[in-house]
Design a binder for these strands. Structure first.
Lengths: 243, 243
DNA sequence: TAGGATTTGTGCGTATGTATT
DNA sequence: TAATACATACGCACAAATCCT
């Protein structure tokens, strides 16, 4: 009587929900470097953690391998892929072009409550300026990305943008953590991110979602340029290009 | 000297080769409507056909489901997805935008032997004008698509373009086969396709791959418009929109 | 170089869910 | 409505492959 009609919780729902849970959890761990590049994941351990057998875990691992985040090798293990900024150049070039399509294809103007979420992320970003933290920055960046995806109603565009985003977003945490002037870089990056968010919120409030795409495009391109420069020190490079 | 060093043919290769073979075979069948929308695929039958167990087959089915060509439902079966032109509008809009990136991102100018392949496809297209055949037309269209993908060296762009292409290419065969003036439509479509190929080959020979992208973009947009018009008869529509 | 330990890939029986009679 | 038929999801045991001693 308190009743759920048809009680549709039974079958495939639980299966897909479990898949989704494991998938999102592992993807998050990979992107936050809880599983750093080179890390070996054992199917049996994961199965135990998620209270299931290897079979559903393998489904998830197969998909993450399709997306380029993992690589399973018979007899060896399932390894988190390593990434170099040079190899990601093509992905970044594509992301730059595709960024403009947000706000161009089936633009969706956010409502008041969605704007509040932007404001909340901005607050968290300000707090981050006071107390810099690379992990929280990465998480904020991800949440902002997903929020931006709500600006378009074009589902295939969302799916593709997400795929490309998660192919590249680890590189920042990885590069930053290897850098000498860690704190400087982090603070600067947070500052840039804050400006990007501010500009984008302003553009949305102007009602021009095309501008959002342009801003986003510019920031993706600049982000890549900074990463590339960090990995290819411009100074004392004279004697190094023997190859 | 004739030699493969390390002889890396042993293990995982056979596994991935089998996966690839089954995947390409099934995708081809789905796109050529050998498996029409609504068709139920039984894992056991496929396993028997490819001389393997259900396990590797399930890997392939899972991926085809990710790509939107299949849908597995617990207790029911694995069903070829049905498609309607209206639902594919978003995919087409995205394809139109992305088409321009071919020739813009890491353009690769084809060599002499690759140009010969274009010429061969053109010959087959001319032969098709004499003896129209929808299936051969679809196959030609696919081969031409894959040839075009060689114009860019951007691998992620290739992967995404392919994914989107295979999400939409069945709709033509499906729509055409339901049409009354089947032969007229087919002949017209072949004619249009011949012009597209001719124009694109000319553009390539001019050395301007950007133009190729523009031509391609135009034809994708027009192709969608024709399909949309065919599914939404402009005439005698007055009394039909009661919904 | 050979053998054992470890890990993914495969095969198959069982559980669970759906549809039909 | 209940029972039967049937297909996918799951779990486990074994085979195959790699790495290290």
């Amino acid at each position: 009587m308190v009743a759920e009609m048809k009680m549709n919780v039974p079958g495939p729902r639980i299966s897909r929900a479990r898949f989704s849970h494991i998938y999102l959890t592992l993807r998050s761990r990979i992107c936050l470097l809880d599983y750093p590049p080179g890390q070996r994941l054992r199917e049996e351990d994961l199965a135990a953690e998620f209270h299931t057998s290897r079979t559903p875990v393998r489904r998830v691992l197969a998909r993450l391998e399709d997306e380029g985040l993992l690589r399973s090798v018979h007899g060896v293990g399932t390894i988190v892929t390593d990434i170099h900024i040079d190899e990601l150049q093509q992905v970044y070039q594509l992301r730059v072009e595709i960024a403009e399509l947000i706000g161009k294809l089936h633009p969706v103007h956010p409502g008041r409550e969605e704007m509040d979420v932007y404001k909340k992320l901005l607050s968290r970003c300000e707090a981050l300026m006071e107390k810099p933290d690379a992990r929280e920055f990465a998480r904020l960046n991800m949440e902002f990305f997903h929020l931006l995806m709500r600006l378009t109603g074009n589902e295939p565009l969302k799916a593709i943008s997400e795929r490309l985003y998660y192919q590249t977003n680890r590189i920042w945490l990885k590069t930053a953590s290897e850098l000498a002037q860690y704190d400087d870089v982090l603070l600067n990056e947070i500052s840039v991110f804050q400006r990007e968010m501010t500009d984008i919120v302003a553009a949305i409030e102007c009602g021009d979602l095309h501008v959002v795409g342009h801003i986003r495009r510019a920031h993706i391109a600049m982000s890549f340029a900074r990463l590339y420069a960090a990995a290819h020190p411009p100074e004392e490079a004279a004697g190094k290009d023997i190859v």
